[in-house]
Simulated scan of single mutants.
Amino acid sequence: MRKLPPLASLRAFEAVARTGSVTRAAEELARTHGAISRHLKLLADDVGAELFERDGTGLRMTPAAADFYAVTRSVFDQLERAYDNLGSRAAGPGVHVACSATFAMRWLVPQLAVFYRKHPDIRIRLSMTSAREIRNEGADVLVAWDMSSYSDADQRRALPLAPVNFAAVCVPACARLAAAKRTRIAHGYTSSAWDQWEAKTGKSVARGDVLEFPHTHLCIEAALSGLGVALVETRLIARELAEGTLVAPFGTVQFDGGLRALPAAGRRMNAQAQAFVAWLRDALTV
C-alpha cells in the first residue's frame, strides 16, 4: 500500500511553493485562504517538520521542502502531460499543435485544406496563445520563431522548418514621413524583433512614439490603420503587400533561428506528428 499525502494537500503545497503566497494559491485553486493553510498544516504535522518560513510579506520554503517541491513539480508536470495525452488519444487520431494566434489565423488555417487532401485521416487540433504564454504543455508539436525564452535543451531539440523574413511595413502615406515622425509599433512579448532589425540593417526607420500591442495581428491592424510602422513576418501579410494596403519600403531581413517545431518533451513524436512537421516544412518553403 502506498503512503502518499492527500492530493488536495499536495496541490495546495505545490501552488504555494510556486507562487510564494497562500493568497495567490487560494485564488488559483478556487479555495479559501483558510483551506490552503489547513492543507499546509496537515502536511507539516504529518511529516513532523515545517515547510515554510516567513519572508517579508511572503513565504520561503525550508531546504527540505524545496527538495520535496522539486520532485512534486516534476511529478505534476508529468501527470499533466500524461492526462492531456490520454484525453487527446480518447478524442481520436490527430495532432495537437500549439502556435501563435496570428500564425494560425493568417497562415496555418488557410493551408489546412491542402494538408487534409494529402492526409485525410489526420486531424489537427490547435492551441492558439500569445507569444509570451505559448508553452509545450500537452501539445504534440509547438511552432514558434522566437524561442529565446526556452531552455538550451529545448532549443537543441527544436526542428528547423523555414527561415523567417521580417519587413517593416506601413501604409503608403506613412512611408513618406520622415523617420523621426513615424511611430514604432512594437509587439509586447517579442521586443527583440526591432533590436534584430536595427542590428542587421543599421537603420532606425521609426524614431517617433512607440505603440505596444500583445499580439501580432493587433500590430498589423494598427499599421493598416495608419498608426505607424510594424515589424511583421512577410508570410503573415502576403495579401496586404500584394494589394498595396501595406508597403515594405525598407526591405526585408532574415532573422536568426527561423521558424522551428518543438516536439513534446518526454515522448517520441508519433507518425502523425512527423507527417505534419514534414508537410509544414515543405509548405513553408514554397
Results as ranks from 00 to 15, higher is better:
Met1Lys: 11
Pro5Phe: 14
Pro5Glu: 12
Ser9Ala: 15
Leu10Val: 13
Ala12Arg: 02
Phe13Pro: 01
Val16Gln: 03
Val16Ser: 04
Arg18Trp: 08
Arg18Cys: 06
Val22Arg: 10
Arg24Lys: 12
Ala25His: 09
Ala25Asn: 09
Ala30Leu: 06
Ser37Asp: 09
Leu43Gln: 09
Asp45Thr: 01
Gly48Leu: 01
Ala49Glu: 14
Leu51Glu: 04
Phe52His: 01
Glu53Phe: 11
Arg54Gly: 01
Arg54Asn: 01
Asp55Ile: 00
Asp55Asn: 09
Gly56Ser: 01
Thr57Leu: 00
Leu59Val: 02
Leu59Thr: 05
Ala64Tyr: 10
Phe68Trp: 12
Thr72Ser: 12
Thr72Val: 08
Phe76Gly: 00
Leu79Gln: 14
Asp84Asn: 12
Leu86Glu: 14
Gly87His: 08
Gly87Met: 04
Gly87Val: 03
Arg89Lys: 14
Ala90Asn: 12
Ala91Trp: 06
Gly92Cys: 10
Gly92Phe: 06
Pro93Gly: 11
Gly94Asp: 09
Ala98Tyr: 04
Ala98Lys: 04
Ala98Cys: 05
Cys99His: 13
Ser100His: 14
Ala101Arg: 12
Thr102Ala: 03
Phe103His: 09
Phe103Ser: 10
Ala104Tyr: 05
Met105Ser: 15
Met105Arg: 15
Met105Tyr: 15
Met105Gln: 15
Pro110Ser: 06
Tyr116Trp: 05
Lys118Ile: 00
Ile124Lys: 04
Arg125Leu: 00
Leu126Thr: 07
Leu126His: 05
Ser127Pro: 02
Thr129Cys: 03
Ala131Asp: 15
Arg132Trp: 11
Ala139Phe: 08
Ala139Met: 05
Val141Gly: 03
Trp145Phe: 13
Trp145Lys: 08
Met147Gln: 09
Tyr150Val: 00
Ala153Ile: 11
Asp154Met: 07
Arg157Gln: 11
Arg157Asp: 11
Ala158Phe: 01
Pro163His: 12
Val164Phe: 09
Asn165Ala: 11
Ala167Pro: 06
Ala175Trp: 02
Ala175Gly: 01
Leu177Gly: 07
Leu177Ser: 06
Ala178Val: 06
Ala179Met: 00
Arg182Ile: 06
Thr183Ile: 02
Ile185Tyr: 07
Ser191Val: 05
Trp197Arg: 02
Ala199Tyr: 10
Ser204Tyr: 08
Ser204Asn: 13
Val205His: 03
Gly208Trp: 04
Val210Pro: 05
Pro214Phe: 01
Pro214Cys: 01
Leu218Ile: 08
Ile220Pro: 03
Ala222Asp: 05
Ala223Pro: 03
Leu224Phe: 13
Ser225Trp: 07
Arg235Ala: 03
Ile237Pro: 03
Ile237Asp: 01
Leu241Pro: 01
Phe250Asn: 08
Gly251Asp: 02
Gln254Met: 07
Gln254Phe: 06
Asp256Glu: 14
Gly258Phe: 08
Leu259Lys: 02
Leu259Val: 04
Ala261Asn: 05
Met269Asn: 09
Gln272Tyr: 14
Trp279Met: 01
Asp282Ile: 12
Thr285His: 14
